[in-house]
Nucleic acid binder design. Sequence first.
DNA 1: TCGTAAAGTCTACAGACGTAGTCGATTAGC
DNA 2: GCTAATCGACTACGTCTGTAGACTTTACGA
Lengths: 127, 127
Amino acid sequence: MPSDPSGERISDAEHAVMEVLWDHSPRSATDVCETICDTRDWSIATVKTLLSRLVAKGAVATEPEGRRFLYHPLIARSAYVGGESRRLVDRLFGGRASSLFAHLAQSEALSDEDLTEMEVLLKELRR
Amino acid sequence: MPSDPSGERISDAEHAVMEVLWDHSPRSATDVCETICDTRDWSIATVKTLLSRLVAKGAVATEPEGRRFLYHPLIARSAYVGGESRRLVDRLFGGRASSLFAHLAQSEALSDEDLTEMEVLLKELRR
DNA sequence: TCGTAAAGTCTACAGACGTAGTCGATTAGC
DNA sequence: GCTAATCGACTACGTCTGTAGACTTTACGA
């Protein structure tokens, strides 16, 4: 699975559309709109524009289905998420993931549940 | 220390300037330029523009010093970093920091050192 | 004293982004 | 067959961003 065919960045609004497609695809523009137009208070036109831009960026592909298109992601969610996480860690924590973790811990952004889960994960990683 | 007086977002280029000021302030525009103009390949004009925008956004304040201004941050680095981290975790991991951690772990973005540090931190947090 | 270097302010401009309207083609239902 | 709904393509437009030049004032050195 390609991580990011083009190097183009995906904007916030575009990302919201990607989430819909990652959740379930392929879907038509109308389908996508039905899922987010209400919550984001968008018109169908906005969704169409964002989809075209995503296609132009090589992040989404289309397949014809009758008179319309069905859209599906070309980049995996995990690749996107990984890239964004890395960007953040690089930009703000000098590439040290543990610094990010320390920050979250210190700012009390970690719930008890978070801590437990991480302990489990750490044990697994150490095996 | 206020976390973010205005709600205005700080852009990438602006953030680079903030880092310089966080590292050491107050500084003049020229000082800032001396620190980053080379690495980012910017002209002094660019730095001046970014500084004005940061002042307009309420992220940086000035104090007159003779004929010029000295700039210093109005928002703490930790507040900024915290906000950005939270945004990422909210946007990509449904607010669960442990999911981010799991992702970093899975994508092998965690070094041995990272793991050790986190173990130490976790133990501390549990005390 | 006088010019010049430097500081801040204003203006500029192309590209990205958020948001959406219009238009021409097509299709589905009557 | 014809009309109304629908689809994608194209156009629009204000704002934000990155990047920087031009202009104005001022202070310091010769």
